[in-house]
């Protein structure tokens, strides 16, 4: 199994277009970040990628074949979804055994090791887990799936800062140790920026960016200095936001051009990705 390609995908729910003419390629052995606001179409996209729902038009193509014609390949795809499909009354350790039945590549030993690291109580039943621990359980199942493609829908939902960091650490570990492709949907762009290689931004059903993190970072920069100096510099620039503190100001500038002449009183630093993301996905009306 090689790449997964989405070709001219449209998905309508009654008269609402959830996905509009989406064309994407997911290559083997990469980590992708799928970013979008609430309702942008992230979950719909992941559900189509893993053949849980069908597109209204267009197709999912693997090795030049439509995904529907190669049912065996679907077992090479694991989706850790938003909706909870786990049997409520089962204990965590039973879930691990049960998952192994369905996914032969599932690494049960790793699952136990991760459960211990996250302090997930394996004797508890699914129904008695908190929101955070339910997410952790789903994350562990996906991290240990060892399928060729692993899709995470909001893997840090309800996790505290500590657990989020642990999740990213284990994600990298799994990525380094096998040649799976991981796709992570999230709103936390700054948290994932360093660990993902490619970034896909979806807005109102359309793909607005499909690029490397590095080239997204080159779309802008931050300028800081004294308020007057910064204001003078940014007068003819495309400013997407700013912060002021006492008499200093940081302005976030959108510009693909290299900085040529910078007054000595100003400092330049990396663009704030979160600000860039907010700007790119703003509704026209609120601009």
């Amino acid at each position: 199994m090689s790449n997964i390609n989405l070709v001219n995908i449209n998905k309508n729910y009654r008269d609402v277009a959830a996905l509009k003419n989406v064309n994407l390629t997911f290559e083997r052995n990469k980590i992708y970040g799928l970013l979008g606001r609430n309702g942008a179409g992230k979950t719909t996209l992941l559900n189509i990628l893993s053949n849980r729902i069908f597109p209204t038009s267009g197709q999912v193509v693997i090795d030049d074949k439509n995904i529907n014609d190669i049912p065996k390949q679907i077992s090479n795809i694991y989706l850790s979804g938003e909706s909870n499909l786990l049997p409520e009354s089962m204990k965590v350790k039973e879930i691990f055994k049960w998952t192994k039945e369905f996914i032969p590549s599932f690494d049960g030993e790793l699952a136990l090791r991760l459960a211990q690291a996250f302090e997930l109580p394996i004797k508890k039943r699914v129904q008695s887990l908190s929101t955070g621990y339910l997410t952790i359980l789903k994350d562990i199942l996906a991290l240990c799936a060892n399928t060729e493609f692993v899709f995470f829908d909001e893997p840090v939902l309800g996790l505290d800062a500590n657990h989020r960091e642990m999740f990213y650490k284990f994600l990298l570990e799994c990525y380094v140790n096998n040649d799976s492709t991981y796709v992570v949907s999230t709103h936390h762009i700054d948290e994932v920026a360093n660990i993902i290689e490619n970034i896909i931004i979806i807005n109102e059903g359309s793909i607005i960016r499909d690029t490397t993190c590095e080239s997204l970072l080159s779309e802008g920069y931050t300028i800081s200095g004294k308020i007057e100096d910064v204001d003078k510099y940014i007068a003819d620039k495309n400013v997407i936001g700013f912060d002021t503190l006492a008499n200093t100001k940081s302005a976030y500038i959108l510009s693909a051009e290299k900085i040529t002449e910078l007054p000595e009183s100003l400092q330049v630093s990396r663009i704030n990705l979160q600000k860039l993301f907010i700007e790119l996905t703003k509704k026209e009306a609120s601009k």
Partner: peptide, 10 residues
């Protein structure tokens, strides 16, 4: 990559 939490490609 693991030590600094970076993508190995970087």
């Amino acid at each position: 990559a693991l030590g600094y939490q970076l993508n190995p490609a970087t």
